[in-house]
């Protein structure tokens, strides 16, 4: 391939991020949203659980059998009470359901709306490794290097079976499948390392299909990215000459 083509590729595939990013403000972070919703969820289900359990425990103590021949003496429910006991709880549960669904939908929108200017990396999964290809042709295996403060979009497919790219620290996973394209994005804010795990059973080394997301300082990333791109160009040239 022509060298000029390679050099031009990044221009095409990397939309200029500067304007859209403006210091990372205004980009919602789904991971933080997940933690918030999870806490609200815990309060919600704990409350319901405690009410149910407390009522049950009280009944268990209050209505224990005192004489061997004793029988229950339940009140007969009239039609109104019977219907009420079905309809009122049903509406209470539905109210909670719709409340939670609305909350969940709000967060879902964040998860599904990719911010402008995300770094788009192609991911090919295969038994049992992750291969990341950057817009400039740089390729890494099991190691996704990204700059801090810029959202990352993965465009995923699989070469063999179904895998699922899971980054617990960013609270996100999505399956990668042969013949289909799926997307996943996350927002690394600070430099650091995060575990990548496979979350869809894929055979012998499923549990060893581990990788890392390495979040770098933007300058350090830029330097690495240029060097890795040059190496990829050189490799492609060698291949082309053969």
């Amino acid at each position: 391939m022509h060298e000029s083509l390679r050099r031009l590729a990044p221009v095409l595939l990397l939309p200029a991020p500067a304007a859209a990013l403006a210091g990372g403000e205004g980009i919602p972070d789904p991971a933080a949203g997940w933690d918030r919703l999870w806490d609200e969820m815990l309060v919600d289900i704990t409350l319901i659980g405690v009410v149910f359990a407390a009522v049950t425990a009280w009944f268990m103590w209050r209505f224990r059998r005192r004489h061997p021949d004793e029988e229950g003496c339940p009140p007969r429910l009239g039609t109104g009470a019977a219907v009420g006991w079905a309809v009122v709880p049903a509406f209470v549960f539905m109210a909670d359901d719709f409340f939670l669904a609305a909350k969940g939908w709000e967060l879902w929108q964040q998860y599904r709306t990719v911010p402008e200017g995300a770094l788009e990396v192609r991911l090919d999964s295969a038994m049992w490794s992750w291969t990341y290809t950057y817009p400039n042709g740089a390729v890494t295996v099991n190691e996704l290097r990204v700059p801090a403060g810029r959202p990352v979009l993965l465009r995923m497919t699989s070469r063999d079976v179904v895998h699922s790219h899971f980054i617990p620290d960013f609270r996100v996973k999505e399956d990668s499948m042969p013949g289909r394209i799926t997307y996943l994005w996350f927002y690394p804010k600070r430099p650091g390392e995060h575990v990548v795990a496979c979350a869809e059973y894929c055979g012998l080394l499923h549990s060893r299909m581990a990788g890392k997301v390495i979040v770098m300082e933007p300058e350090a990333f830029a330097a690495w990215y240029r060097a890795a791109g040059r190496r990829a160009d050189a490799a492609a040239r060698d291949e082309g000459e053969v």
Partner: peptide, 26 residues
Amino acid sequence: IFFFLIGGLTGIPNAIASLDLHLQDT
């Protein structure tokens, strides 16, 4: 009753698609 209460209530986060993006297959 006890187990089903816990099991049923912990099903609610799984039902919520956005929370499930983390919880799925863990």
